[in-house]
């Protein structure tokens, strides 16, 4: 069945007793993993909703990544730790702990060949790790600010990092060479009255045909401390680095926490903030979304199921919601 964004509706909810922070489906499509404000990871079985709790991090968990075979999950915490887990054990126990960053781990990704784990964090660093044994492969030159997001180019040759100040760096995986930079500074605001830096590249994604590179975050931040800002995705042409279009909202307030390309070529944006929770659907040639879905509560993270039909969202109201892009049964 093809995905139809205009049919998107909340199909399932997994209830917990603490607000959620982040969520990811596992590659085998059996579970959704979620980090919560209770300092634990919670694994929900998609069929039936059985919950298993993985308490290991000393602080909030903010990021997940999976091995390509789906057997291993790595979590990154605000304690700077990386923890390796067996995905499908009845009660997973940590396989390995690595002190990775001085400060929060904000983003994780695994290389297309499944051998390298990349991590970015509040120490302004992007690091590469051997996924098999947890050893450090490479540490790139420091960034200008916190690394908010990162991802591997599907070709495997490059890894990209996005920062609070709106700089995106494209690094060579095989060396420590900086290849080029994208200017996504429209996603950053310095508010002189409040004396704060705000925004940043919260998420990045490449279109399935490799043509477009999306950087998600926020703009129009007239009151950062009061959450007065609107979601924004800057879309670049990958090869030329020219800006293709700015994907905007219909005036709703919020932050794009994550962008993911659907295999059919449209972009899904998970949004939360003072405007509540929203899912946006954009086409590469349009600034406004061709569809949007209001969620029952503000969203803090989003992931697309491997089947291309379901979307998971993490919510403050202690729920993981699974939305379906199919007609209601």
């Amino acid at each position: 069945m093809p995905a139809d964004p205009k049919q998107t509706h909340v199909a399932t909810e997994f209830k917990h007793d603490s607000p959620f922070i982040c969520c990811r489906f596992d590659p085998q499509a059996k579970y959704v993993f979620a980090g919560a404000e209770d300092y634990a990871i919670h694994r929900f079985e998609l069929e039936g909703g059985a919950k298993v709790t993985l308490p290991e991090h000393d602080c909030w968990v903010r990021a997940f990544a999976f091995s390509k075979d789906g057997q291993t999950m790595v979590s990154g915490g605000s304690d700077g730790q990386l923890v390796w887990w067996p995905v499908a054990e009845p009660q997973p126990k940590p396989l390995r702990n690595v002190a990775a960053h001085a400060g929060w781990v904000r983003a994780l990704d695994v290389s297309p060949d499944g051998k390298i784990l990349a991590s970015g964090g509040n120490d302004n660093r992007l690091k590469l790790w051997n996924l098999e044994d947890g050893s450090l492969i490479r540490e790139y030159a420091p960034h200008d600010s916190n690394v908010y997001s990162m991802f591997f180019h599907p070709g495997g040759e490059f890894v990209l990092s996005g920062t609070l100040l709106g700089n995106v760096k494209q690094w060579e995986v095989a060396s420590d060479k900086l290849v080029r930079e994208f200017d996504a500074k429209t996603l950053h605001t310095y508010n002189g009255g409040q004396a704060v830096d705000y925004g940043g590249v919260r998420s990045m994604a490449l279109s399935p045909d490799g043509q477009y590179f999306a950087c998600g975050g926020l703009h129009k931040a007239t009151n950062p401390l009061g959450a007065v800002n609107e979601p924004l995705v800057e879309l670049f042409e990958w090869e030329s680095q020219k800006k293709k279009v700015s994907h905007i909202s219909d005036g709703e307030k919020g932050i794009i926490w994550r962008v993911v390309y659907h295999p059919d070529g449209f972009l899904v944006g998970g949004c939360g903030g003072s405007g509540g929770g929203l899912l946006y659907f954009w086409k590469p040639d349009q600034d406004k979304p061709f569809h949007k879905v209001k969620l029952p509560n503000t969203a803090r993270d989003m992931d697309l199921h491997p089947d291309g039909l379901r979307i998971a969202t993490a919510h403050h109201d202690q729920r993981i919601r699974i939305s379906s892009m199919t007609p209601k049964s």
Binding site: G193, Q194, A195, V196, Y198, P224, L225, G226, A227, G273, S274
Partner: peptide, 13 residues
């Protein structure tokens, strides 16, 4: 020292 009125993103700020 300004500003700590962090109704939004208290931890980042």
């Amino acid at each position: 020292h300004s500003n700590y009125d962090t109704h939004n993103e208290n931890f980042n700020f």
